[in-house]
Computed example of a mutant assay.
Amino acid sequence: MNLDNLRYFVRVVEANSFTAAAERLGTQKSTLSRRISQLEDELGIRLLQRTTRKLHLTPDGEELFERCRPLICQLEDARHRLSVNQPEPQGRLRLTMPTELALAMLDNVMASFMQQYPRIQMEVELTSRVIDMVEEGIDVAIRVGVLEDSSLIAQPVAKVARGLYAAPEYLQQRPPLQSPHDLQQHRYLGLLMRSDPLHFDNWDQSHSLQMETPLRTNSLNFMRYMARRGFGIARLPCFFAQPLVESGELEAVLPQYPILSIALHALYPSRQHLNPKTRLFLDHLHAELRQHPWASDALIQLPGANVT
């Protein structure tokens, strides 16, 4: 049995698409179709039922996939582990991350990685939208906060410190703030997130805070701008607010009541199929964030690694 044909079959089934599998494998869709047809001819069985929109495994195809996928993953992982020590890693690495995170916190991470590995071609999509990583051929996604239910592997990268910030003019015109309870007399600018309640480290929050919320947005940049214009109090990552604090355009609100940090995760499609470029990037991300002033508890646990 041709192992390459078997590998192509496994990857097509994982992607549920010839097009997506061809993109990830760096080959042509027609090549994949031909190689899987060769595999079917060699075995004398039909593995896939092809339609215009979807692929359907036959019972024989389903059995072959379940039996052979772990073996293919182990073979590829062994090859990747051997190749990771080659002197000049090269090829394409596709990433996605939120725009503000990339520009304000991960810019130096990206720059130093490109300097260290000049033959790796980076493709970075800056967006907060939920991406089908397999369908779009993404190697690593950096995400902040609560993650959607997913079959992706999610590894914690760091915890990002946050705080409450407002324009001095706004605070002068509103009731004084002595404790988080006083926030109920203020305007709160929030993010469009499914679940991200406002919690404090050292305040008994036995009941939820009811605050006027004139604005919710998916853009930290826009929320920071509206806070600077005096429209309310915004919860922002410290690294994102600090330049405006230093310039006097924003002030920290209730700094004696720290807000719980928010988690930063690295997502990738397969624990067993981690290519060397992805492994190098995750190692680099881990090392750089451990030294970042606005990140804490930086941690990435790679397959096979023991972390205590």
Score class of each variant (00 low, 15 high):
R162N: 10
Q90I: 00
E125T: 14
D41E: 09
L71K: 12
N221S: 13
I262E: 15
C73S: 13
T52E: 11
Q49M: 06
L289G: 03
H273W: 12
F231L: 15
D149R: 14
Q272C: 09
E42A: 11
E88Q: 11
T127F: 10
G91P: 03
P255G: 06
L55T: 06
A102W: 02
R92A: 11
D283H: 14
A15M: 08
D41M: 02
G61L: 05
Q210S: 10
Q90P: 00
E249T: 03
A167I: 00
H181Q: 15
L220I: 08
L147I: 08
T213Q: 15
P118I: 09
L285S: 05
L264Y: 01
N2L: 07
R94Y: 08
L285M: 13
P255E: 10
L254P: 03
M193P: 00
P176I: 01
M223T: 07
V140R: 05
E135N: 13
H292G: 05
T19C: 04
R162M: 09
R162Q: 14
Y257N: 02
R187T: 06
Y117L: 05
V253A: 02
P243A: 10
Q178I: 02
L39T: 01
P87I: 00
V146A: 13
Q116V: 01
V134P: 00
A21K: 01
A295T: 13
S128V: 11
V124A: 11
I142P: 05
E125S: 14
Y257E: 05
A20F: 04
L191F: 12
A161L: 12
I120L: 02
D139S: 11
S83V: 09
R11H: 14
L274A: 07
T52S: 12
L183H: 04
Q210M: 10
G44F: 00
R46Q: 14
H286L: 14
N221E: 13
A234W: 01
S151T: 15
V109H: 02
V144S: 02
A161Q: 12
R235E: 15
I138W: 00
R216T: 14
L47I: 08
A161C: 06
I131L: 12
A287K: 14
M97P: 02
L191C: 06
D297E: 14
M226W: 05
D182G: 07
P59W: 08
Q272L: 09
L250S: 09
E148I: 11
M226C: 13
G248F: 04
W294H: 12
L215R: 08
P269R: 06
I131M: 14
A227S: 15
I36V: 08
L106A: 04
G26P: 05
